[in-house]
Amino acid sequence: MKDIQLENRAVTDEKTKIAANNVNVYYGDTRAIKDVNIDIKSRTVTAFIGPSGCGKSTFLRCLNRMNDTIDSCRVEGRILLDNEDIYDTKVDPVQLRAKVGMVFQKPNPFPKSIYDNVAYGPRIHGLASKKADLDGIVEDSLRKAALWDEVKDRLQAPGTGLSGGQQQRLCIARAIATSPEVLLMDEPCSALDPIATAQVEELIDGLRTNFSVVIVTHSMQQAARVSQQTAFFHLGNLVELGDTDHVFTNPTDPRTESYITGRIG
């Protein structure tokens, strides 16, 4: 893998987008997340790292209430999006998810055309009144996802026919087509080859200008490359949170150091 060093890795915006206070997540009787407090800043890429089963994906899914679809899952504590509690009974998860989009581990395009995949979100949220508007959104999203040049001639071809890397970029385009404010990415590169990974990483860094991005990753190199903030999870605890440079070069917690140096994981 190219060990590229992305430029401009200073945090540009200090405004807090999502604030989690004392969050606990239970699966049945098992406590999967323990008292997590974290602030996620806007226009920043925040990476969640940690060994398998540490709860980083679970916590990510709490941020747009995707855990609601799991019957046995229960969330305690407060998660605020722009100072509004997303677990408040008045909140409609549908509206929340329109603001907090998600990209999944495995590329999961719908068995529809490329165009319909990207247009799906805008259509259900009613973001475009005219065909031309929708065309604009689709083109714009595909451009942002760096996919436009590759697919502009075959927008009606099925999305499932693309290569793995293209599929994942299509899924990113689909997620950003609804203009979310936060984009959650759950190990978006784990199913991709190195070249596709590099493309997606480049894309993630570009997305920072518009969105606040939270990315779960297995790869410390990836976290180092794309993120400005890094959170290290271990056994359901948030062990360390800080500027990526700081966490990787000078971790405060011994567990973080062990993980980074490869002793746990």
């Binding site: 999006l81 509004e84 008045k90 909140v91 409609d92 509206q95 929340l96 603001k99």
Partner: peptide, 15 residues
């Protein structure tokens, strides 16, 4: 219009 606390007309319809 952007608060997640208040459902807009479209959301009501969808729900």
């Amino acid at each position: 219009s952007t608060s997640i606390m208040v459902a807009d007309a479209r959301t009501l319809k969808r729900n």
